[in-house]
Amino acid sequence: MSKTNIPPHLNDRIVIQTQDFSLSEEVNLLEENNNEDGAVVTFCGRVRNNNLGLDVKGLTLEHYPGMTEKSLQKIILTARKKWELGRITVIHRVGKLFIGEQIVFVGVTSKHRGNAFAANEFIMDFLKVKAPFWKKELTSEGEKWLDAKSSDTNKAQEW
């Protein structure tokens, strides 16, 4: 099997980073000099203060460098085959994150809203079950790796 990655689409932006990101800057990048697309759909996921009845103080995100990017690229490529899309941005943070911090951003543009709404949800659903990230929560009862949820697997299978 080849180790060559799929060449990224010119309008794809995939970023894995420890630092925070700015929603307004990301929206600007999706819109700047883009006069073909009337729809911009963005999703931002944040760290909650609760999970499964426990108080959450924060979490640590681990990932598999190299595979993460390749996996996101494949998800985006699949979305581009299903819908006519403009620009796509996926940002995922790794490392230590605290309550209320931004974890993940997905932004999609398209001519009309339908494609951008659908593709945004599709990318998030597959990121949840295919991209190699793992969350370890710091709760009032200590540190614990999160278990994958069957509801996430079921949601991705609906596409």
Binding site: M1, K3, N5, L61, H63, Y64, G66, M67, K70, S71, H92, V104, L127, K128, V129, K130, A131, P132, F133, W134, K135, W145, L146, D147, A148
Partner: peptide, 24 residues
């Protein structure tokens, strides 16, 4: 860097990885 099943053939110089279900 691609998900595979147990019957997949791994060659010398390949990169193999094992991990729990993902939770990002």
């Amino acid at each position: 860097h691609d998900l595979v099943d147990d019957n997949f053939i791994v060659k010398p110089n390949d990169e193999l990885a094992f991990f729990p279900p993902v939770t990002g």
